[in-house]
Structure formats: C-alpha cells, structure tokens
Simulated scan of single mutants.
Amino acid sequence: MTTQLRLTETVGTLVRDHPALATLFERARIDYCCGGRQTLAEACAQQGIDPQGFLQELEAALETAPVASMEVAYDSLTALIDHIETVHHAYLHQELPHLEARVAQVVAAHGHKDARLGQLQSCVAALAAELQAHLQKEEQILFPLLRQLEADPNSTLRSFIQAPIACMEQEHQKTGAALAQLRRLTDDFTPPAWACNTYRALLAGLLRLEQDLHQHIHKENNLLFPRAIAEL
C-alpha cells in the first residue's frame, strides 16, 4: 500500500517519520535540518522542483524501503542524547582535526592552482572552531540540563530550557550557511582533473561531514528539541 504524503507536511517531519527519505532530500538539495520547518511545497518551490513529481518520487521510495519512524527508536530524551553524542559528537571530535590538517596539505601543494583553496581553508577552520564550541555548550550545559529535567520533571530548571535551545538552533543556522559555502568553494565537492589523492580525500571527507551534520542537526532540531519542549 502506498504511503500518502502531503505537500503541506514539513520536510523535517517527513524525514523524522520516514528516515529513508533523507537520501532523496540530499540529492534534491532540500534542507531538512536547519530548514526542517518549511513545507514540502515551499522546499520544492525554493529549489525549482515540480512538487507533485517529487511527491510521487518520495512515495515510490517508501514502497521499496519502508521504515519505522526515527523517533520511536529512542524511548527517552536521554537515549536520544546518548545517541547524538556517541555517533555525531564523537565523529566530529575525531574528524575535524583531520579535515583541518588535510586542507592545509592541499593548500600547501596546490594553492597556486586555485585561489579558492585559501578561502576553503579559512572556511574549514572557522567551521571547526564554531562546531567545537557548539559541542562543548551542548555537552556541558544543554544535554546535562535535559537529562536532569527528564529525571526530575518538577525541577525549577525547567524555566531555563528555552534559551539554550534557541541558542543552539541559531548556531545550527550558521553551520548550514558554512556548509553551503563549502559546496560553493568546491563546485559541489567535485575534484578538478589535476586533484591529487589527498585533495580527493579532502573533498570526500567534506561531503561526509555535510551528510553527517545534516543528520545531526535534524535529530536535534526536529526530534530532540521539540520533544524536550513538549515533554518538559
């Protein structure tokens, strides 16, 4: 039986309820994490995509790869936070230094061939610094607060939850803008003909970074934060 989707549903909700759709949204360059509150119709209009045609493509994908809601996989806020930290935070802590080192090698070897490589290095460095500070705020302030509030819903700390969540969402918007800049500077992560293996590895790493951050931010913006506000 075909799953009936609606153009009035938000893209964040669609990926929350049907995680397999994330791949199609990635291909269509539809932002389902930072832009998760826009409707499917709005997202298609923004990208110049035929909404009815794309809707049918999404529904066809669900026929061949039906999946359960991502939300039901985590029976508590703490379980979802643990997942975000062990999967996405751990990945960033490990990968960001490697990406910074790799882009420095590429600039040293090939910076004279493409002036944008210097801009790419600056963008990667700025994004890494912002993400490291962001992770620290979540790990030391927001996530412990959410765990504590789930353990004790009557805690007086409830009144403090909105501000740090709003701050994290604003920082997610900056991350989305930085990822868009990385794409522009690398021609959608496409290696030039003269690219060495290190350059190609850098571009593959940046693409993986983008994909992981899309999933990471989606899980926070469209699952964790709304659920925390509703339940607490």
Score class of each variant (00 low, 15 high):
10 T>S: 15
149 L>K: 05
105 Q>N: 08
11 V>N: 13
185 L>A: 07
155 S>L: 02
36 G>F: 11
55 L>C: 07
177 A>G: 03
176 G>A: 11
89 H>T: 04
32 Y>I: 09
38 Q>F: 10
187 D>V: 00
102 R>D: 04
152 D>P: 02
175 T>G: 15
121 Q>P: 04
85 E>K: 05
189 F>T: 03
95 E>R: 13
58 L>C: 13
173 Q>F: 09
113 K>S: 08
34 C>L: 05
17 D>F: 01
169 E>Q: 13
209 L>E: 02
22 A>L: 10
232 L>K: 01
109 A>T: 13
73 A>E: 12
171 E>A: 09
84 I>W: 06
200 R>H: 01
225 F>W: 02
223 L>K: 07
181 Q>M: 15
195 A>I: 08
140 Q>M: 15
197 N>M: 05
45 A>D: 15
174 K>D: 15
226 P>G: 03
149 L>R: 00
146 L>D: 06
153 P>C: 00
43 A>T: 07
111 G>V: 14
168 M>N: 06
179 L>S: 03
41 A>W: 06
31 D>F: 06
211 Q>A: 05
41 A>V: 00
169 E>I: 08
196 C>N: 07
30 I>Y: 00
197 N>Q: 14
51 P>V: 13
225 F>A: 05
96 L>K: 07
137 K>R: 13
52 Q>W: 12
142 L>I: 06
137 K>S: 08
175 T>H: 12
60 A>D: 10
133 A>N: 13
208 R>Y: 03
167 C>G: 04
221 N>L: 05
16 R>M: 11
25 F>Q: 06
139 E>K: 10
59 E>S: 14
120 L>E: 05
180 A>Q: 12
68 A>M: 05
7 L>M: 01
33 C>W: 00
54 F>W: 13
203 L>S: 01
119 Q>I: 09
232 L>V: 12
184 R>W: 00
93 H>A: 13
3 T>V: 15
168 M>L: 11
14 L>I: 11
144 P>Y: 10
1 M>K: 13
178 A>G: 13
14 L>W: 13
1 M>S: 12
121 Q>D: 06
4 Q>F: 07
79 A>N: 10
